[in-house]
Simulated scan of single mutants.
Amino acid sequence: MITYLHELLKLYRLAKENIEGFLEKLEDKGYRNILLYGAGEVAETILSVIRDRGASRLNIAGIIDDDEAKKNKKLLGYKIISRDDIEKYNHDAIVITSYTYEDDIRRRLGEVGYDGGRVVRFFW
C-alpha cells in the first residue's frame, strides 16, 4: 500500500509539472484570460494547479461544457457555461481539456463561428 501511494504521488507531481509548463507557455504567448472547454478531470486538475500557484498571470474566465447536467453549476468555484455563451466572457483563448472529444469540440466551435486560431490543445 505504501508503494502504491508513493507511485501515485510521483504521478501527481509529474502531472503537476506538465501542467505548470503548459500554463507557462500560455502566459508566454500573452494569454491572460482563458476559457477551458470540458468540465472533467483534466480541467479540475488544471484549476487545482492554478489555485496552488497562488499569484498567477492567468485568469480562468469560465468552463465550457456541452453536458446539460453540468451547465450553470460550478467546478472548483468556476462557472460552467454553454458554448452559446462564449462571447459573453472576456477571454484570449479557449483551451480544450478533453482528449476524447477534442475533434468534436473543434467542430462545435467552428459551428458557432469561433476563430480556430484562438483554440489551444492541452493534449498534443
Rank of each mutant, 00 (worst) to 15 (best):
M1I: 12
I2F: 06
Y4K: 15
Y4I: 15
L5K: 12
L5P: 03
L5H: 07
L5W: 05
H6D: 11
H6V: 11
L8S: 09
L8R: 12
L11N: 13
L14R: 12
A15M: 13
A15S: 13
K16D: 11
K16E: 14
N18E: 14
I19M: 11
E20Y: 04
F22K: 08
F22P: 08
F22R: 08
L23P: 03
L23G: 03
L26M: 11
K29R: 15
G30Q: 07
R32N: 12
R32E: 14
L35I: 03
L35V: 03
L35D: 02
G38D: 05
G38F: 03
A39P: 10
E41M: 14
V42D: 01
V42L: 11
A43E: 01
E44L: 04
T45L: 14
I46Y: 00
I50Y: 01
I50W: 04
R51S: 07
D52E: 15
D52L: 15
D52H: 12
G54P: 13
G54Q: 12
A55M: 14
A55Q: 14
L58P: 12
L58R: 09
I60S: 02
G62P: 06
G62T: 03
I63M: 02
I64E: 00
E68H: 03
A69C: 10
K71L: 05
K71T: 01
N72H: 11
K73A: 02
K74G: 00
Y78I: 12
K79Q: 07
K79F: 01
I80N: 01
I80S: 01
S82N: 09
R83A: 04
R83T: 06
D84T: 06
D85P: 04
Y89Q: 05
N90L: 15
N90C: 14
H91Y: 07
H91W: 09
H91N: 13
A93D: 02
A93E: 03
I94H: 01
V95K: 05
V95C: 04
T97M: 06
S98R: 04
S98M: 07
S98V: 08
T100N: 09
T100H: 07
T100M: 13
T100A: 10
Y101F: 13
E102W: 03
D103Q: 14
D103V: 11
D104H: 07
R106F: 11
R106H: 10
G110K: 15
G110L: 12
E111D: 14
V112F: 01
G113Q: 07
Y114G: 09
V119R: 06
V119Y: 02
R121F: 04
F122G: 05
F122E: 04
W124T: 09
